[in-house]
Amino acid sequence: MSAYDRFLASNVSPRERAFLVEALELLMRERLNGLRIAIAVAAARGDRLPDVQDFGLDDILRLSRQLSDGAGAGPNEGWLEARAPVETRLSTGRRRTS
């Protein structure tokens, strides 16, 4: 039995499960912000753009969904179905100031 299976088989209350889902939501938000910054920096430098897998977003989503399946979807879990918005800027020039 894997650690994951032991975790889900353990006696986790709905309140604890909801807390874990919320914590994963916050982690996802921070990782998405990190990805956006890394993409902007890489694009500005002309480097390879980072991949979603570099930030573990798939793992966070998978665990969140598994936890949510046992607790039911809450009002703040709409981000689970949404794709990560990724914006890149192609121009690396400075902004004009008036």
Score class of each variant (00 low, 15 high):
Arg36Gln: 11
Arg83Lys: 15
Ala84Asp: 00
Arg15His: 03
Ala38Phe: 07
Gly72Ser: 01
Gly70Pro: 07
Thr92Cys: 09
Thr88Gln: 05
Ala71Val: 15
Glu25Ser: 15
Arg62Ala: 13
Gly93Met: 14
Asn11Phe: 12
Arg17Gly: 06
Asp54Glu: 14
Gly70Cys: 06
Val86Pro: 00
Glu25Pro: 01
Ala38Lys: 05
Ala82Arg: 07
Phe19Arg: 14
Glu30Asn: 09
Glu16Thr: 06
Met28Asp: 08
Asp54Val: 08
Thr88Trp: 04
Glu77Lys: 01
Val21Cys: 11
Gly70Lys: 08
Asp58Asn: 10
Val41Asp: 07
Leu49Glu: 01
Ala84Lys: 00
Val12Gln: 07
Ser64Pro: 00
Asp5Ile: 06
Val86Trp: 01
Pro85Phe: 04
Arg6His: 04
Asp58Thr: 11
Asp47Glu: 15
Ala44Asn: 09
Leu35Gln: 00
Asp47Leu: 13
Ala40Glu: 06
Leu26Gln: 08
Asp51Lys: 15
Ala44Gln: 13
Arg6Val: 11
Ala84Tyr: 01
Glu25Val: 05
Leu67Pro: 03
Ala9Ser: 07
Ala73Gln: 13
Pro85Thr: 01
Ser13Ala: 11
Phe7Thr: 04
Val86Cys: 03
Met28Gln: 02
Gly70Met: 10
Asp69Ile: 04
Phe19Ile: 13
Ser2Tyr: 11
Glu81Leu: 12
Ala9Asn: 07
Asn76Met: 08
Gln53Ile: 05
Leu61Cys: 06
Glu77Ala: 07
Thr88Met: 02
Phe7Ile: 10
Ile37His: 04
Glu16Asn: 12
Asp54Trp: 11
Thr97Tyr: 11
Ser2Trp: 04
Arg96Ala: 04
Gln53Asn: 06
Thr97Ala: 09
Asp5Ser: 09
Ala9Val: 00
Ala44Thr: 12
Ala9His: 06
Asp58Cys: 04
Thr92Trp: 05
Arg62Phe: 02
Glu16His: 13
Ala71Asp: 05
Gly78Ile: 11
Val41Gly: 01
Gly72Asp: 09
Gly70Trp: 08
Arg96Trp: 04
Pro50Asn: 09
Ala73Tyr: 13
Arg96Tyr: 07
Leu49Tyr: 01
Met28Asn: 03
Leu20Trp: 06
Ile37Asn: 05
Tyr4Ser: 08
Gly46Ile: 13
Leu32Val: 14
Ser64Gln: 00
Arg89Asn: 07
Ala40Gln: 13
Gly74Lys: 12
Leu35Asn: 02
Asn11Gln: 14
Gly56Trp: 09
Gly56Cys: 13
Glu30Ala: 13
Gly93Ala: 15
Leu90Asp: 12
Met1Gln: 05
Ala23Thr: 14
Asp5Trp: 01
